[in-house]
Amino acid sequence: MNDVLDLKIKATQIRLDLINMIYESKSGHIGGSLSSADILTVLYYNVMNIDPNNPNWEERDRFILSKGHSVEAYYSVLADKGYFPKEELKTYCKFGTRLIGHPNNKIPGIEMNTGALGHGLSIAVGMALGAKMDNKSFRVFTLMGDGELAEGSNWEAAMAASHYKLNNLIGIVDRNKLQISGNTEEVMSLEPLEDKWKSFGWDVLTTDGNDIEKLIDTFNAAIASANDKPKLILAYTTKGKGVKFIENKANWHHRVPTEEEYKAAISELQELMEVYLNEQNIK
């Protein structure tokens, strides 16, 4: 799926699905899921070589959701791609479900159980190293939160990725500048973040992580890069993107909407969806 408008529609659908999941289960991480929805959409519908009918295909690109708490966006994408029935999203976080509150590798399409922060990049380094050792051409992607970059293990992995010249590894940081207790720069300063990654030997590409078109261009540029450095996409996003009253508020990191809020969020996204669908009909 390459058309930008189609992807915008898809990302809006993912947002609707994940809000439904969270409201239904009365549990989840709404802010970070909304901020990462566009990144996941572009990865799964445009960038990655995958085959949902054959989730264990050896040549598949690998994806690790290091910020495992944003699992609602991830499950919504995987269900929509056909890794498991969309109906199953209703079981999210309920007793007996496979769709537990953090990624679970018993679900087709999910490589690793993640959610303890600061683990994903090291795993991605191992996978990328394995691909190189085995002369395989698959690429490894991992999506990190910005708050989780305070975990020192990320920087051990960052050092290793450039040491082993893992140019088949693309890290993405969902830079929404908020974490559970507030602004990242107040909690534990990350800036200058671009310089930090550069100084660890990474190629850094910055983009608007909620702009589908720019994301596609940035991923293409990262993949096309011919040097031997690992790539880091610093994706500037808005936490809670897509629902105005949720946007940029740290307290929406892990809050469940009330009935009123739920209705308002759904109606705002449905309005946006209608705008996109009208655009599509005009085309």
Binding site: H119, S122, I123, A124, G126, G130
Partner: peptide, 11 residues
């Protein structure tokens, strides 16, 4: 993490 990643791709 590296050991886990390597194991996940078959080593």
């Amino acid at each position: 993490g590296v050991a886990a990643g390597l194991a996940r791709v078959g080593f």
